[in-house]
Amino acid sequence: MLEVKGLTGGYGRIEVLHGVDAHISAGEIVTLIGANGAGKTTLMRIISGVQPLIAGKITFEGADFTALAPHKRVAAGIIQVPEGRQVFRPMSVEDNLRLGAYRRKRTPDADLERVYAMFPILKDKRHLAAGGLSGGQQQMLAIGRAIMGNPKLLLLDEPSMGLAPIIVAQIFDVIRQLKAMGITIFLVEQNASAALAISDRAYVLETGRVALSGPAREIAGNADVRKAYLGI
């Protein structure tokens, strides 16, 4: 579904990614683990098109997406839930969700109901400003907003960051539900053990290079990964 080849990118003159190759097949959950500063968020941003790449190629469903504008990638079904939620704070919860469907022709009321069914708390607070929600609720809103865009490939950047354990469990449960709905998921997580447990495959990113890749179970069993990322 998505293939990146030789991706090189960074901020200004500082190169963060040095030739990353990866692919994601339809229906998979693929996890990307790596230390802070390894380039995980940069990779996500380049796939979404909000950050230019220096070299490399991005192919999505057989089409060359390397130079495509971000809004066209959203229309094609690549939707990102960014790190730190990034909800539209002054706007109402419902406006946030409706904006998620900005690139779609019709107003998808059925999808709105589906998101509310998934996160009932958002329905209760639908007229409140998103900035007043708790961190966990904002994360639910950010995921709900992405679902409104009808994603084929959902990029989740650190969805459990800074959340209480009970909320984290809920978020991982939602990720499983999304997979069951047929959405392909590319997940970046600090909480590597929880992420690997729900993933099909994984990549380990170290200082801008893919150090390791393979089935999630194998990665979770790798001695170096266990020591470096799982704290075992």
Binding site: S48, H71, P82, Q86, F88, R98, L99, Y102, R103, R145
Partner: peptide, 19 residues
């Protein structure tokens, strides 16, 4: 609303497909 969204958070606006 897209204007307001762009004002509130330009990155997030791009990520929902606002040009």
């Amino acid at each position: 609303k897209a204007v307001l969204a762009t004002a509130a958070n330009r990155l997030a606006a791009q990520l929902v497909g606002v040009n």
